[in-house]
């Protein structure tokens, strides 16, 4: 049994025009100690997925179908008090915006100590204080500043305080939603390294939700590429980067500059993701895919399993045998970007 098993999960948001299908039939597993990255563009459902797992969907959001099994218990059916206990203790979340996740009227120390005392009854004050000091040092904050209020911290410091809090209870699963996007690159690097070493120490797993392909490449064992509420492709990080089968994965990878390469030709995927209130039938990426055929627009692709990857593309076979160089060429994609009548500037 895996630590986390998400099956056929559907998370919808109530809107005036009907439900928006933010997460639409997503399944995956996460092993204890494993790091799984979820990448995709804004609106692809990656943050909603994390919120559904930890149980903090906004009022308009609800789980329409599917299950989230954590260590054998279905979180979607768990009574609220029990679920709340799991939060922080077993599952913690490092959210994108630290300002909204810290309480402005308590000092950082009070907040961490409270979390510890609530979830680990019997922990003495001295011991809690020691944990605060230890966590602060771990994320590179001066422990003397633990008595500050959140507003006295800079954005980067708050993000680190948040990470300290998420780690304080040694959770077995961490959901990290753009954990370091707000941080400068040197700090990001140090924090990711430290999270990694704590993880090893306590053998916890992590779900890393990000748009940053390079963070995933460096921190994750496996990757899920999401598009418009669905899994486009999933597999081990090396294979996803080396030999992806889904055109969207190929496009996304080639859209991202690499500091180690000069003269890269970056690719741009023209168009925008579809509306999720009335999503198109067939493949959701068809509209933006330079290789799409009528079949793609009509028929939803089944999973194609090969080389450890699960890819939802009708033409995964062809990609592998002949289409990959074509899909890998920015020219293929940029053709669709150009004006329909080619009328640019002379």
């Amino acid at each position: 049994m895996s630590q986390l098993e998400v099956e056929d999960l559907e998370v919808y948001y109530e809107t005036e025009d009907g439900p928006a299908q933010a997460v639409d039939g997503v399944s995956f597993e996460l092993e204890q100690g494993e790091n799984l990255g979820i990448v995709g563009e804004s609106g692809c459902g990656k943050t909603t997925l994390a919120k559904a797992i930890i149980g903090i969907l906004p009022d308009a959001g609800y789980i329409n179908n599917g299950s989230i099994n954590f260590k054998g218990d279905d979180l979607t059916e768990m009574p609220e008090p029990q679920r709340r206990r799991l939060k922080w203790e077993e599952i913690s979340m490092i959210a994108q915006s630290a300002m909204n996740s810290l309480d402005p009227v308590y000092t950082i120390r009070e907040q961490i100590v409270e979390a510890i005392e609530t979830h680990r009854p019997g922990t003495g004050r001295v011991e809690s204080e020691e944990i605060v000091t230890e966590m602060f040092e771990l994320v590179g904050l001066d422990p003397e500043r633990a008595d500050d209020y959140p507003h006295q911290f800079s954005g980067g410091m708050r993000q680190r305080a948040m990470i300290a809090m998420a780690l304080a209870l040694e959770p077995s699963l961490m959901l990290a939603d753009e954990p370091t996007t707000a941080l400068d690159v040197i700090m990001q690097d140090q924090i990711l390294k430290r999270i990694g070493s704590i993880q090893e120490e306590i053998n916890s797993s992590m779900l890393v939700i990000t748009h940053d392909v390079s963070v995933v490449a460096e921190t994750c064992d496996r990757v899920i590429v999401m598009y418009a509420g669905k899994v486009a492709e999933e597999g081990p990080v090396e294979e996803i980067f080396d030999q992806p089968y889904h055109p969207y994965t190929i496009g996304l990878k080639r859209a991202f500059p690499n500091i180690r390469q000069s003269n890269q030709d970056l690719l741009s995927i023209s168009g925008y993701p579809p509306e999720l209130i009335d999503p198109p039938q067939g493949c959701r990426f068809a509209e933006r895919c330079p290789m799409a055929t009528d079949r793609c627009r009509e028929e939803e692709p089944e999973a194609h399993y090969e080389n450890g990857l699960r890819s939802y593309c009708h033409y995964a076979d062809e990609i592998d045998t002949e289409l990959r160089p074509y899909a890998d060429d920015p020219g293929t994609w940029n053709q669709t970007t150009a004006a329909p009548d080619g009328g640019v500037e002379e």
Partner: peptide, 15 residues
């Protein structure tokens, strides 16, 4: 230090 800290979108590159 700055350039060394930049993550690389290629899992086969050790940094």
């Amino acid at each position: 230090a700055l350039i060394n800290a930049v993550p690389v979108p290629d899992p086969s590159v050790g940094r």
